[in-house]
Design a protein around this nucleic acid. Structure first.
Length: 142
DNA sequence: GCCAACGTTGGC
DNA sequence: GCCAACGTTGGC
């Protein structure tokens, strides 16, 4: 089991929109970055991820999980690009802002801080637990 | 809206 | 295979 972080600009695809998709989830298409794609290739069914709103909000708003392994991205003919499907699992009782993450020394090495522009990031287990704690999730999905 | 960071492209 | 040019991302 591994942990990840998915970034999205809420006016393009928001947490609310993912929740509305229900159990079926949504194809995480549109990624055109090798590192982000490789992260998705490494994902397994049931892997959990933070859902982060970039540009607006700038906070972790919820937790999602991988419900389909990496497959061809239907929004392009280019065979290089693949994506997984994700679905909403639970909402953060208290969204965790980028500011809060940066202010927490325990999260100084988190990709969100060190690789700001990467849109699909790996998250370490201790980081996962810490952000869940900050978000008010007493029993983090694992 | 600006701009810094950084990934990608393409000429050589 | 290098590197300059260019495009995009994303915080501020």
């Amino acid at each position: 089991m591994a942990y990840w972080l998915f970034k999205s600009e809420p006016f393009k695809f928001s947490w609310q929109m993912l929740k509305d998709k229900g159990e079926t989830g949504e194809e995480w298409d549109g990624v055109r970055n090798y590192q982000a794609r490789n992260n998705m290739r490494a994902m397994e069914i049931g892997d959990k991820g933070f859902f982060y709103h970039s540009n607006e909000g700038l906070e972790v708003v919820g937790i999602c999980e991988v419900c389909a392994l990496a497959h061809h991205d239907s929004t392009t003919d280019d065979p290089r690009w693949e994506c997984v499907d994700i679905r909403a699992v639970t909402e953060m009782p208290k969204p965790v802002s980028l500011k809060d993450v940066k202010a927490n020394p325990a999260l100084a090495d988190m990709s969100l801080v060190t690789s700001m522009r990467l849109s699909v990031q790996p998250v370490k287990e201790d980081e996962w637990l810490e952000v869940c704690r900050m978000g008010g999730l007493d029993n983090p999905p694992m």
